[in-house]
Amino acid sequence: MEQSMRPRQHQELFQRHTANPILTGANWPYPIHSVFNAGATTLADGSTLLLCRVEDRRGHSHLCAARSKNGVDGWKIDSEPTLLPDPVNYPEEIWGIEDPRITYVPELRKYAIAYTSYSRGGPGVSLALTEDFRSFERIGVVMPPYDKDAALLPRRFGKYWALIHRPTTLAQGAHMWISYSPDLRHWGSHKLMLEARHGAWWDADKIGLSPPPIETPEGWLVLYHGVRQTATGSFYRLGLALFDLQTPERCLRRGEEWIFCPEEP
């Protein structure tokens, strides 16, 4: 086959570690059903902390911390749940807490955890603060159902904090929004940040934030997941978008192609 007729190979941005999965339920020091959807951060000593979503056999989730010096192996997992639902004081957590995203906030000298609180009305967004992942200050629910896929940006914009999240409505679909707050408790100035595309696109049905945004000299780099409904179910892939450093709801560039997808059954 001539060179001009050979299929073009995509350049892969990510390489899966040969030891995957690096954590499974079999590693846990107490009985669980499964572990997945971890939030990740680097601690002050350079080690990696994963705040894992752990599901029990009821189908309810809590959060548990795992620590590693290199982020690959030698994991030290908390001997009991790190953060449990507290439906007595926070009734929005009655069916569990899920899918944390961690942001270190230099001004507060604390880590901010945005997580999904599963209420009777559906999933909403809650916030908590911690210095050490041992004790937590719950702020409570900040975005009502249906809303999830949230992360706090690490600094203020003027006087206001910014939170990316993904509300879902039957009429408007599932798109990424950003909201602002003077105190992390009262949120407003809601702005549409990135829309799910339509038609045959890989991100045509709904989108949502994956890890927290990465601040770069060119802007906030966002990895987001797009979901396309197929005859065999939902298919998730990852894509990239870049947002303005000072006006983070303004999209500067958006990739047309997905960059990462499942490879195994």
Rank of each mutant, 00 (worst) to 15 (best):
E2Y: 05
R6I: 09
P7K: 11
P7F: 08
R8H: 11
R8L: 15
Q9G: 00
H10Q: 10
Q11W: 10
E12D: 08
E12G: 01
F14E: 04
Q15L: 01
R16P: 05
R16N: 09
H17C: 07
H17G: 03
T18N: 11
T18E: 15
I22K: 03
L23R: 01
P29V: 01
Y30N: 07
Y30H: 13
P31H: 06
I32N: 02
V35Q: 12
V35S: 12
F36S: 02
A38L: 07
A40F: 09
L43H: 00
L43T: 03
D45N: 15
L51W: 13
L51S: 08
V54D: 09
R58S: 15
R58H: 10
H60S: 03
H62E: 09
L63V: 02
A65Q: 03
A66Y: 07
A66G: 04
R67A: 00
R67Q: 09
D73V: 00
D78P: 06
D78Y: 06
P81M: 07
P81V: 05
D86G: 04
D86E: 15
P87W: 11
Y90G: 00
G96M: 13
G96A: 12
I97V: 12
I102C: 05
Y104I: 04
Y104D: 04
V105L: 14
Y111A: 06
A112S: 12
S119W: 11
R120I: 02
G124W: 07
G124C: 11
V125N: 02
S126G: 05
L127Y: 06
A128S: 14
L129V: 10
R134G: 06
R134M: 10
S135E: 15
S135M: 06
S135T: 15
F136K: 02
E137V: 07
R138L: 10
G140T: 05
V141P: 04
V141N: 10
M143W: 05
P145D: 01
A150Y: 05
A150C: 07
P154L: 04
P154E: 09
R155V: 10
Y160N: 14
I164A: 08
H165R: 00
H165F: 15
T169E: 11
A171F: 12
G173M: 06
G173F: 04
A174E: 04
M176Q: 14
I178E: 01
Y180I: 01
S181K: 10
R185Y: 05
H186F: 08
H190E: 09
L192A: 09
M193Y: 04
M193A: 11
L194H: 06
E195W: 00
A196Q: 12
A196S: 15
A196P: 00
R197Q: 12
G199Y: 07
A200R: 09
W202A: 03
A204L: 02
D205K: 07
K206Y: 03
P211N: 08
P212M: 02
P213F: 04
G219Q: 03
W220H: 01
W220E: 02
L221G: 02
H225K: 00
G226H: 07
R228W: 08
G233I: 06
S234E: 14
F235T: 03
L238D: 06
A241Q: 01
A241H: 03
L242V: 03
L242D: 02
L242G: 01
F243S: 05
Q246N: 14
T247V: 14
R250Y: 14
L252D: 04
R253K: 14
R253V: 07
E257F: 08
E257T: 06
F260A: 08
P262F: 11
E263M: 14
E264C: 05
E264F: 13
E264R: 12
